[in-house]
Design a binder for these strands. Sequence first.
DNA 1: ACCTAAAGGATAATTTTTATCCTTTGTAAC
DNA 2: GTTACAAAGGATAAAAATTATCCTTTAGGT
Lengths: 133, 133
Amino acid sequence: MINYTDELRRHNLKATPQRLAISNALHSSGHINIDKLYELMLKKFNSISLATIYKNINLMLENSYIQEVKIPQNKSVYELTKNYHSHLVCTKCEEVEDIKLNMNPILSEVNSNSNFEISKTDVVLSGICKDCQ
Amino acid sequence: MINYTDELRRHNLKATPQRLAISNALHSSGHINIDKLYELMLKKFNSISLATIYKNINLMLENSYIQEVKIPQNKSVYELTKNYHSHLVCTKCEEVEDIKLNMNPILSEVNSNSNFEISKTDVVLSGICKDCQ
DNA sequence: ACCTAAAGGATAATTTTTATCCTTTGTAAC
DNA sequence: GTTACAAAGGATAAAAATTATCCTTTAGGT
Ligand SMILES: [Mn+2]
Ligand SMILES: [Mn+2]
Ligand SMILES: [Zn+2]
Ligand SMILES: [Zn+2]
């Protein structure tokens, strides 16, 4: 149970109990979609509003406290902002893993092939995870 | 104005006028989202139903006639299925370009770092396109 | 302790997507 | 070319997802 009060404030977000709980849910799940997050939050706050979830997710995204990861053929998942990394998505169990990949080969390839100035790379690799094979 | 009759049938899709028009819209735009596609189609069929657009996009996806590309912070775009490639997205003009990238460096990196069996890679590079810089 | 802008909850409204139902049509068999 | 029929289109209702509104509560600064 990490205390995210300071981290929230650093992103100009008031440290409400709901936000602290969302932070911990994101931390312990790693990556989670809106519906699952709402389910989890209902266990802690039996009358939390779905609107509160949406409002917070959107505000946290605006303030870069969290990031959205778009998953092929599935709902987006959200995670606490961390150092740049790519994602592995298991098509069986739907689990999302972080993986640190060196993007230099790709970035230099783009550089030599086009005049595009890249500012962000989103890489999602789909397949079967260790546990599912 | 390419005739997509055979290509549609190859994917077990009846060649209706609406589907032929959708095919051509996808071909000439390269990548297009649902709303823009609907706008374009309305010009050709002034009474086409939005439901027809959705039904066809979903069926075409199921039959692998088209592919969805999830764009960070934006709506998904759709394209006719072609050989594997990655995407460049301009954050200014929103244009989506295809780019052929060699994924081997990444695939081998994953192989040495984990037991994940990759079957598909989705790479979206965001930045500023040639025309916008 | 007090003040106030911001956040939460309840819920309405809006937007997005899917389902339904009836009419029309693409296409295969004759 | 005609026929037959499953499939597709259009209109629209329904459902699902997301956002807005409004009033109450509260976090955090003074
Ligand atoms: Mn991650
Ligand atoms: Mn493409
Ligand atoms: Zn798995
Ligand atoms: Zn551009």
